[in-house]
Design a protein around this nucleic acid. Structure first.
Lengths: 413, 413
DNA sequence: ACAATTCCTCTCACGTTGAGATTAATTGGT
DNA sequence: ACCAATTAATCTCAACGTGAGAGGAATTGT
């Protein structure tokens, strides 16, 4: 069944190896490349020449070395060869980041999502934001691809929105196709929780901890799973959505106790009136029994995901997650280990609400690298400077538009 | 980081492609191979020559073709180039199958497991059974590898038994290493449920339905999960062991209601005395409430695995599973679809208790093919004749020893 | 200025592949 | 029985990418 000639294959593989070493963003010696890739001198020189001819790699400064002999000239990947865009399209806010080919954020924006617009209007608005950002700081570099994270069920190929609670109008393929056509670049969507997990894996503190579960506890309850670095998507995007799980013998589902909106409703049904779910945590004396129910529900959820995936870490994100005491999370972890024998660390996210945006960007980068011919194996081996990426995102210029269309620009910090 | 030269690589890849086509067991034209692999004539002829020099491929009869011109000679993979062995070591019975390199069973055995033996004694006994079978029908063909499926928690690399309820003496690595050394061939162990799922995937009726969950409901409750054809193992082998999951608000775990041994105990705690779990199903009038609890527990379990993995099919195996009415299983499937939106077919196994044995054999075959240099991609593309494999297993000579060492041979059917 | 050292470029042999030419085998017609 | 036609198998050769080594270029220390 597989039908491919194989003579040009090795070349591609070696090129992929060299790119993989350079895409970390570090400038390095050709000698270093020879050592890293295990290829022969001639091959490395030839491939670097090819890459320079394509303007994907540029010579950098001389490498200072003590002792006699000719100095080597470093080469580095040309970050300005392409742009990628990541978008976190939430129910209330929409964040956009445009980064160079090395994942260094150039500019970002944060606006209120015009959630009452039609699909076409929303698409046009998103396109406008992306165009503005690219025009301002793009320096004429071509935009390569866009990834949009949004709350809702998304098919595995990222082409269709099956369902979205907060943004019902984008259901189907119209929204995505419109954006893709207007911008003229491939555009894919992804579930926001899944992309947040991608962000945590790539740029968060999950060091070589490639099997992890993310629980996004905000207005709703989102989940994402990664096994050996691969984020699972399932056929219809429902994989891991344990919020829908009914608690046996009761009328509730898991999310009724673990998402902001549903918990308020549940409290009311118990005769307890609170404006926000977080308020429950501020007065533990008064809401003790209810809080115990919430903790039990979280324990049960962690037990299930621990058995389902054996994750090294369970990461909590979302506004609702911040209410949990760190000590209580350790207790949950301990209890799960005792009950079912799986040891998973339960802790809060360290990327916070940037995880989704970074994940969308990382997803776009992945497709860019794929287009450059970097093999999946080599792509996984790219070591990024996490701190640098986060720092760049925090300090890059930020724009935002008010709802009546006026634009304000400010520089963060 | 990856350091490999790449000049001999394409050759290996092309060889892998040719092998992949031939390992289906079908004899075919070289012309057919050229069409299937997309390689050039010269390459295919050269590779087939190499394989014939290694005696991995042999010429078969002429290919009859109408019309003028020279007739082509078919070639076929030489099944007699190596033997593989699969073992299903259960708490009560031990089944062994020895098959040729094409997965065609040559001989098998079924004996009572000497479960009171020490690890060393049990290892020696297993070695004896394998040696007997190989000596009887092996024709001097070298045995390549052995896979042992057993009830218990096994590490992902198949080298260590972490825990085994029925066969506590084989904990650790001693049992496996002893067998490996005595036989002189690599030996790995696997969880019996996981291997049963491998069997169902490879030889059962899961047509291109590569995402599936297997629930082994016998004395205990075992589970196995495959995502896109890959059976998940997790770090410690606990992945998917939902039998350990406590039912919230109750004292039971899931397996207390879904495994034979535990259900009898649970019934007793409710004041109901039954000798076997199956007895409950024979008198639905009398045990109605208890049966409803069992069905609810199964529904809950299916709901969890549906959300956890989005399987196309949930396969039930084990003696306990046979008690469920097919109609009731459809209801469960329907109910899960309505509750959480995931459509998974729930049905009983069609391989029955042979799934584990076939899975162990398939696992051994996989390692043999790996040793032959077949790439993972090509290995997945091998199309086996499922019916033929099952037929061969059913009709091959079968031996069995009684407990006092006398040997009886009989031919099935 | 010269040697020593290191980086870079150039040349060439090797192995593998695919395309075409050539030979072998088979059929049908005269 | 012989010969064309046709198809399978083999042979020959150029192309390509690679690694190893030779030689040139750049830099430092004496």
């Amino acid at each position: 069944m597989p039908s491919n000639a194989s003579s040009p294959l090795p070349r591609a593989s070696n090129r992929s190896a060299v790119l993989s070493a350079l895409l970390s963003g570090a400038e390095m010696d050709r000698q270093q490349l020879i050592a890293d890739t295990g290829l022969s001198r001639a091959t490395v020189f030839r491939i670097v020449d090819d890459l320079m001819a394509d303007d994907l790699v540029r010579e950098a400064g001389r490498r200072l070395r003590e002792g006699p002999g000719r100095q080597s000239t470093s080469v580095g990947f040309n970050g300005s060869s392409a742009l990628v865009c990541g978008i976190d399209l939430g129910g209330t806010n929409c964040r956009v980041v445009v980064a160079d080919a090395l994942g260094r954020a150039l500019i970002r924006s944060r606006d209120a999502t015009p959630r009452d617009s039609t699909a076409a209007e929303l698409a046009a608005w998103v396109v406008g934001r992306v165009r503005d950002l690219v025009a301002e700081h793009g320096d004429g570099i071509p935009l390569h691809t866009v990834t949009i994270g949004l709350p809702g069920v998304v098919t595995g190929d990222g082409s269709t929105v099956v369902n979205s609670h907060n943004l019902g109008q984008i259901k189907g393929t119209e929204f995505i196709e419109t954006i893709s056509e207007l911008l003229g670049v491939p555009t894919v969507v992804g579930n926001d929780s899944n992309l947040a997990l991608v962000g945590e894996l790539r740029y968060g503190a999950l060091p070589d901890q490639q099997t992890a579960v993310l629980l996004a506890m905000g207005t709703g309850l989102g989940t994402a799973v990664s096994l050996d670095g691969q984020v699972l998507v399932g056929r219809t995007g429902l994989l891991g959505e344990f919020g829908r799980l009914p608690l046996p013998g009761r009328g509730q589902r898991l999310r009724d106790l673990l998402s902001g909106a549903d918990l308020v409703a549940y409290a009311r049904s118990k005769g307890v009136e609170v404006p926000k779910a977080q308020a429950l945590f501020l007065d533990p004396e008064r809401y003790g029994p209810l809080l115990e129910e919430v903790h039990d529900a979280l324990t049960h959820l962690v037990t299930i995901v621990a058995l389902a995936y054996e994750p090294g870490t369970v990461v909590l994100t979302g506004g609702f997650s911040e209410s949990f005491a760190t000590g209580r999370l350790s207790e949950i972890s301990e209890q799960v280990a005792q009950t079912v024998g799986v040891h998973s660390v339960v802790r809060k996210s360290d990327l916070g609400d940037s995880a989704g945006l970074l994940g969308a960007m990382a997803s776009s980068l992945g497709r860019l690298y794929d287009a450059l011919g970097v093999s999946a194996t080599h792509r996984a081996a790219i070591e990024v400077d996490r701190d640098l990426v986060i720092e760049r995102l925090a300090t890059c210029p930020t724009t935002s538009t008010t709802l009546n269309g006026q634009q304000a620009e400010r520089s963060t910090r």
